[in-house]
Design a protein around this nucleic acid. Structure first.
Length: 285
DNA sequence: GTTCAGGTCCGAT
DNA sequence: ATCGGACCTGAA
């Protein structure tokens, strides 16, 4: 992939099929917001890997990566953005695995520009623990509150931002403090997870597609669905197929009440995101 | 007042 | 192994 330099810490690649808006609005990531005052047609900004980053598309179908030096483009950001995957191939395989299902095809047609991000494991673990029985705006508020209280400050041209706290930083939190941040019963889950990771009892680096579900579900507050999200969004297991309330409804209304999960394929998780995103967009109309 | 939100836990069958 | 009720919080 050809990488062009625009200015210091500002690079871009030609990515005609990349939909920045759907990628950051489809509920996989809770720390990026649209910049309505951008000079680009579409721009999102937020913090990942301890850096304040901006991702934007221009009218020539380029994807701009703003905020990191050249060496990180290859080592971090192309992977983070999902640009190291062949989505033409992935979509073809999904259509095959779902036997050209009409609703799947429609979902790909409308939302096929979205990409699965490869996010940091600890942040993803905590974010999806907070996601349970909760709504996306409130999840974002809780994650942001965690960062402001326990994360490292990042000074940017847009003001001060905060990194997601490290396991050790978050392990310092008291349950009572977390409850004051309105996490409710999830406070002790966060405390427990941070302590387990910080102490080394739980090794996030050891997660693989084979062991991730069992390992993650051993943590308090992590069930099948949250584990599936972490596998998909942070372990890189694209076969992981989270079933939430939306996907449950999709199975009921679009798949006649049942979906054979042994046949959703190696990219079932990507398909799940297309379906999730598409159904939500239909509902928003 | 009730329901719902990218669910999970826990105790009872 | 499966099932139902409870659960913090806040917006609609």
């Amino acid at each position: 992939m050809q990488i062009y330099e625009k200015s210091v810490n500002h690079f871009f690649v030609y990515a005609p099929d990349y939909d920045v808006e759907r990628t950051f609005e489809c509920g996989q990531c809770f720390r990026f917001e649209k910049n309505s005052d951008s000079t680009f047609p579409c721009e999102y900004s937020g913090v990942a890997h301890g850096r304040y980053m901006q991702f934007a598309t221009d009218t020539d179908k380029n994807l701009h990566i703003i905020g990191a030096p050249r060496d990180e483009i290859d080592s971090i950001w192309l992977h983070y953005l999902g640009l190291d995957r062949d989505y033409d191939k992935i979509k073809k395989q999904i259509l095959k695995d779902f036997d050209n299902h009409e609703f799947v095809a429609a979902a790909i047609k409308q939302t096929g520009g979205l990409r699965i991000l490869s996010q940091e494991r600890f942040e993803t673990l905590c974010s999806f623990i907070l996601s349970q029985n909760n709504n996306i705006p409130r999840i974002k508020k809780l994650v942001e509150a965690l960062c402001e209280k326990y994360g490292r400050q990042i000074k940017t041209s847009q003001g001060v931002r905060y990194a997601f706290p490290s396991p050790k930083e978050l392990a310092k939190a008291e349950i009572s403090d977390l409850e004051k941040m309105k996490m409710g019963y999830r406070a002790r889950y966060i405390k427990n997870a941070a302590a387990a990771v910080a102490s080394g009892d739980f090794d996030l680096a050891a997660l693989t597609p084979d062991n991730a579900e069992e390992m993650l579900m051993s943590l308090l507050g992590v069930g099948k669905k949250v584990a599936a999200c972490i596998r998909l969004f942070a372990v890189g297991d694209y076969a992981s197929f989270p079933v939430d309330v939306w996907v449950g409804r999709i199975i009921e209304t679009r798949f006649g009440g049942k979906l054979d999960f042994s046949k959703t394929g190696a990219y079932g998780g990507v398909a799940q995101q297309y379906l999730f995103c598409y159904e939500r967009e239909l509902a928003a109309e």
